[in-house]
Design a protein around this nucleic acid. Sequence first.
DNA 1: ATCGTCGGATTATAAATAAT
DNA 2: TTATTTATAATCCGACGATG
Length: 682
Amino acid sequence: MAAVEEAQHQPTNPKEAPNTTPETEGKSSSIHTKVLRRACDCCRKRKVRCDGAEPCGPCKKATIRCAYLQPPKKKGPKGLRSAKVLHALRRIDDTANGSPTSPLSPEQSGGAFGNWGWSSATTSAGNMQASAAYGVPTSVLPEHQYYQQGMTSIPAPMQIAPDPPQLYRSDTDSSAWQSNPQSMPTVSIPTISLKSEPSPACALSDRLPGDQFMPYVQLFFTHMFPIMPIIDHGIYLDPRLYADMNALGPDVYCFLCALCAATVVQLDASIPQPASLHPNKSADDLFVEECLRERASYDFVSESQTLSCMTSFFLFAYHGNHENNGKAWYYLQEAITFSQNLNMDDEQTYGKHDPTDAQWRRRLYWLLFVTERAYAVQRRKHTRLHASVNLPAVFESEDPHLLNGFVNLANLFSAVDDSFVSAWRGARRQSLCNEAWLANTQKQLDAAALALDNVTETQHLDISVTRAWLQVLSWQMGVSNGLIWGKGEPGMRLDYPIAMARKVCEITSGANASALDSHGIGMEQKLSDIAGCLADVLRCTADDTSPTFLEGKQYLNMLLGKLSDMRGRESRYLAPLMSKCQGLMGFELSTQNLSLPTDSAVSSFAPPSSCEWLSAGRKFSMADSLGMLRTLSMSGNLGMPALMVPMEDWQQRRPSGRVYDEAETNAMNGWQQHVAGTAQAV
DNA sequence: ATCGTCGGATTATAAATAAT
DNA sequence: TTATTTATAATCCGACGATG
């Protein structure tokens, strides 16, 4: 034994030259070189010598792709291993011979545990003792208890476990992901993970290194989590998750790729991004490519769990941001299908899950719900999900503040019911959209907000503005369906957006800036949407001198003012809004101006001839105004300020929080073409 | 003879621990 | 602190079987 140790240690001394022992004689061809600091992925796998070249020699010879993507793992002992082992050993000794603990000399302990093979220096024996020692429940410092947990999960390999959260395919040190004292719902994302060892074929196809993921995941939690609170910080911000990507189950890996891809496209260019792995490929494309490649390697449909569902969701987000509508919708549908496979649309099933797990599932379901609603409305699609399950808990959540916003949003979108969606989709004629229905919807939107009055200022702000925003949306629908304006319910009058703007102004002007700012870019968008719609209305009623419309101009001014100072700077939505308001504000200054602005694309719209719902009391042709509004609304972009953003500007990524961003972007795209086409026609 | 695979010796190095 | 020890990961030699 001692001899073995010495034999091992001997060659360590001479650094460069591997001290050739007498009998090594002729074999001293090992003058080779020193060991390469880093072998390429393929050579590592093949266990052959690598020369470290960019396409290395062996790879070139074998005509395989040479890459250095595999991140080197950290060497050295992990955690408090030795201390723990010692501790465990002492405990065992205590219980074995009943004697009070006393410091044992090395010889003593050697004798006591000789039958474990403890003293033998072979690696296999070493592994055994390690697990044996860890398996013993010992009193360990609380912060290190996860070592214990992880080890105890060893005995059940190869088991498909829906309940026990197991992120790892391999057995060791997964553990920690549950014991997060910070986040209250320590949630398990159930995965089928205990799969067999990576097949050789699989293993050869190298995954992206773990350090590529962490920064994006962090950005996700910073910027996107508030509107997609569906994954646990405790799990996904733990660096150990990324220590060995190859150890991850394929579903986890796919998910991370999709998450990062979606995050990348949402990022503003101003946010520093890690250097891309591929010089000629952007990181998001790379992530998606990886995701799809990995998905092809396993049966992700049969093995689908919530992770697969989320993966599809983030693929949706990725494609949506790239204005790839077909694919975006496809992946959203895929995500929805997964959710239905998992019976997430059935309230009953939530009882079967661990309470915290059930909460995560609810959030995911509602996120899908909200997203589908928003997207369906914007893109005029059918919806499949219904508000059929309870909302996620707010006050018991890890961040009630945040969850409240999420739930409020979900609440609001429940008011966007199926008939809303169908009406929005439907042809103008046989539309389901009638006065009574519209009034009802408006009322529902009001009611959804009223239930949440005992809420902090920040939350109140959020829900009120969102509600107004949705009401503006429904109002647009009314316009596009040719409802008669000027009488009846307030929600059907031309000045409705002005009323909405008034509400928003009342709320926001009273609010302190930080409460407003805390909603981030989402608030900016909503405000600018509302302002944009208001601008449309004002433009179309430019001749109107009634107090209401003059008031409207004031509100528009206020909203612009707000947007000029959001989060300490000017909102990026201000500039497009301003260009949209060109001339409008001019009216304000120069009292009256009877002609429509001619410098704007909007003015080039010919009013439809079928405007027979003339309203009395308007000097300027109401038909013109309504016709214009109607044309605007049919493009799905009434009030959308960003539609005036120059091409290259909005093609850049928007640092957006909102789920439906990409939908809007898409809509804008259509709008731009529309405008361009119309302008040409005139 | 040549090639690809892979057990495992060897080497490198991070972390723990002891010495100062 | 620094030095030493220990635990772990990475490299790649060389035996071995497959293939031509």
